[in-house]
Structures are given as structure tokens and as C-alpha cells.
Amino acid sequence: MRQFFTEHDVLILPVSQVPPFPVEQEFPTEINGEPMASYLDWMRSAYFITVTGCPAISVPAGTTPDGLPVGVQIVAPHGADLRLLQVARAFEWLREPLIRDPRARSARDRPISRQKMPSSGATQVT
């Protein structure tokens, strides 16, 4: 992860390996022909990030063709928590047209201000 973050500001990847499944189903037993022996097996994309200790956040990303919600996790390097929150907020604002559920539109209604960060000169999105 350290090497990755020398060239990239953040990593964006799926929250889970599958879209939402019926509540009666404990966990997916197979993904793309790969057997999932336990609940943890199907959550690899989430727990692999957890063990790095990097700050991460999950945000809504849209819906499947059937209207089920899907999300992405955004990961930043150690110590870049503020950057992570700024990127997550910007992502939510930019992806807003992809969301079909009108109850999820409140994030777009909040104004976003951009200002120069004094220490680095970078643009801060709030």
C-alpha cells in the first residue's frame, strides 16, 4: 500500500464483491465460479483493506439495473484522513445524478465550497 500511495492519492474499489442478495441468504456461496466457504470469504474486498490500517470510507455509488444499491470504498494513505473525507464528499456530490432514489438526493442540495488550504496550497472541498 505504501508503494501504491507514492503515485496515487486514493484507491477506489468496490465495497463488496456482489450486489445485495436476499436477506434469507446467509452469504453468497459462489462468486464468478469461485466457491465461498464462509461469510468472510465473500467480504475479501472489505477486510483486505481493513488489515492495512489505512483510513477508508464507504459511499453510495449508484444502483444495479434492478435498482439495488452498490457502493465503493475510498482508501487513503496513513495520516490522510482529511483528504479521504474531502474525496468522499466530492465523490458523493459528483455521482449524485447516478442515484435513482429521491431520498438520497440531500447531499447534492448542500452547497460545496472550494478554498485554498493554507499549508499546501491545495484546493479543499468542503
Rank of each mutant, 00 (worst) to 15 (best):
P69T: 03
P69N: 05
G67Q: 03
Q86P: 01
Q73D: 09
V75P: 12
A88E: 08
H78S: 07
Q73R: 02
L84C: 03
W93P: 13
T63G: 15
I99G: 13
Q73M: 03
G62K: 01
R89E: 14
G71A: 05
D101A: 12
L82Y: 06
L85V: 03
E96M: 13
A80N: 09
W93N: 05
D81Q: 04
A88R: 08
Q73L: 08
Q86S: 07
E92H: 00
T63K: 11
G79C: 01
I99L: 15
L84R: 00
S58N: 08
T63H: 11
R100P: 09
A88T: 08
G67P: 01
E96N: 14
A90W: 14
I99N: 08
V75S: 10
V59L: 14
P77E: 11
L94N: 07
R95L: 07
G71K: 14
R95I: 08
A80L: 10
R95Q: 14
H78R: 09
G71F: 09
P69Y: 05
F91M: 08
E92W: 01
S58W: 04
L85F: 02
Q73C: 07
A80I: 11
R95P: 14
P60E: 01
E92L: 00
I99A: 07
P65R: 01
R83N: 15
G71Y: 08
A80K: 03
L84G: 09
E96A: 15
H78D: 02
L85N: 04
A90I: 10
Q73N: 01
P60A: 12
Q86R: 03
V87M: 12
Q86H: 04
H78W: 06
P97L: 07
H78F: 06
E96G: 11
L84I: 02
D81K: 02
G71P: 06
V87Q: 13
D101F: 11
G79M: 00
G71D: 03
D81I: 01
R89K: 15
L68I: 15
P60R: 09
V59Q: 11
A88H: 15
A76L: 08
V75N: 04
L98V: 12
P97R: 06
I99H: 12
L82D: 13
L98Y: 12
A80T: 03
D101L: 12
F91Q: 05
V59N: 11
V70A: 06
L85I: 01
R83P: 06
D81G: 05
P65S: 05
R83Y: 00
A76F: 07
P60S: 13
P60I: 09
T64A: 13
D81V: 03
F91L: 13
P65W: 04
H78Q: 07
P69Q: 01
R83W: 04
V72I: 10
H78E: 03
D101T: 12
E96R: 13
F91Y: 14
T64V: 10
L82N: 14
P77I: 00
V87L: 09
P77L: 08
D66H: 10
L85T: 05
E92Q: 12
L68K: 04
I99S: 15
G62W: 06
Q73K: 01
Q86Y: 00
D81T: 07
R95E: 02
E96I: 12
T64D: 06
T64N: 14
L98S: 14
L85G: 02
A90Y: 15
T64E: 10
T64Q: 07
E92N: 00
G62H: 02
